[in-house]
C-alpha cells in the first residue's frame, strides 16, 4: 500500500485534495485568529511548515520505539521542542512578526494539524514519505491562510502586505474583525468543496 503511492502524491494531497483547512478543517484557531494580514499569515505558515516537517521526521523515526500507550505524550514532547525552537528563532530574527503572532506562536503545539499528521501519518509511515507529507500539509496550510489573509487584509484595510493597493477603495472594516474571518473561511470552504465536487462529478 505504502509503495503504491508515489512521494509526489504524498506531497500534493495536502495542497488541494486533503487540504487541512478547506477539507479536513483542522487548525482553525490560528486560521481565524492571525489572518488579519498577509505578513502574519506568512510568518505563521513558515513556522507551521518547519514544525510539521521536523516533528513528522522525528515521530516517524521513533515510531517503533515508543510504546503505544504513551505515544501521545511522547509526540507532544517532540512537537513542543520544535515549537520552542521556532519561537526562539522568530523572537531572535523576526521580533516584529513574533510579537504580532503573540500567543499563537507557542499555541502551534496544540495546532491539530501537527498532532493530526503525527497520529494519522507519521506514526505509520517511513521517514521519507513523512517528510513529504509534512511539507505538503504545511504548504497547503500556508497557502490557505495566505489566501484568507489576502482577502481579509484587502477587503478590511485596502492593503496587501501593508501597501495600499487601491486608493479609492473604502475598506470594509468587518473583515479584519473576527466575524470577517468566519465569513471568508465559510465562503472559501463552500467554494473549494464545490470545485472538488465538480471535479469528482467530471465537469
Amino acid at each position: 500500500m505504502e509503495k503504491n503511492k508515489s512521494l509526489w502524491q504524498e506531497f500534493s494531497k495536502g495542497l488541494f485534495r486533503e487540504n487541512p483547512i478547506f477539507f479536513i478543517v483542522l487548525g482553525l484557531c490560528p486560521t481565524l485568529a492571525i489572518t488579519t494580514s498577509l505578513e502574519n499569515a506568512l510568518g505563521m505558515g513558515i513556522a507551521v511548515i518547519f514544525v510539521l516537517v521536523f516533528s513528522n521526521v522525528v515521530i516517524s523515526s521513533i515510531r517503533n520505539i515508543v510504546p503505544d500507550k504513551i505515544r501521545i505524550p511522547c509526540f507532544i514532547v517532540v512537537i513542543a521542542s520544535f515549537v520552542t525552537i521556532v519561537e526562539l528563532l522568530m523572537y531572535g530574527y523576526f521580533p516584529q512578526i513574533a510579537k504580532k503572532l503573540g500567543i499563537f506562536l507557542p499555541l502551534i503545539v496544540v495546532n491539530c494539524i501537527i498532532m493530526g499528521r503525527a497520529e494519522g501519518f507519521a506514526k505509520n509511515h517511513k521517514i521519507i514519505p513523512s517528510v513529504f507529507d509534512g511539507l505538503g500539509m504545511g504548504l497547503g496550510f500556508s497557502l490557505a491562510i495566505l489566501l484568507i489573509a489576502g482577502i481579509r487584509e484587502f477587503l478590511g484595510t485596502g492593503k496587501l502586505f501593508g501597501k495600499i493597493i487601491c486608493e479609492s477603495f473604502s475598506p470594509c472594516a468587518i473583515f479584519i474583525l473576527p466575524p470577517g474571518a468566519l465569513f471568508t473561511l465559510g465562503v472559501l470552504i463552500a467554494l473549494f468543496r464545490r470545485i472538488k465536487k465538480g471535479r469528482a462529478d467530471g465537469y
Binding site: 473604502s170 470594509c172 472594516a173 468587518i174 473583515f175 474583525l177 466575524p179
Partner: peptide, 8 residues
C-alpha cells in the same frame, strides 16, 4: 449590523 461594523 454587518454594515455598521464594516463602515462605521
Amino acid at each position: 449590523v454587518f454594515l455598521l461594523l464594516a463602515w462605521p
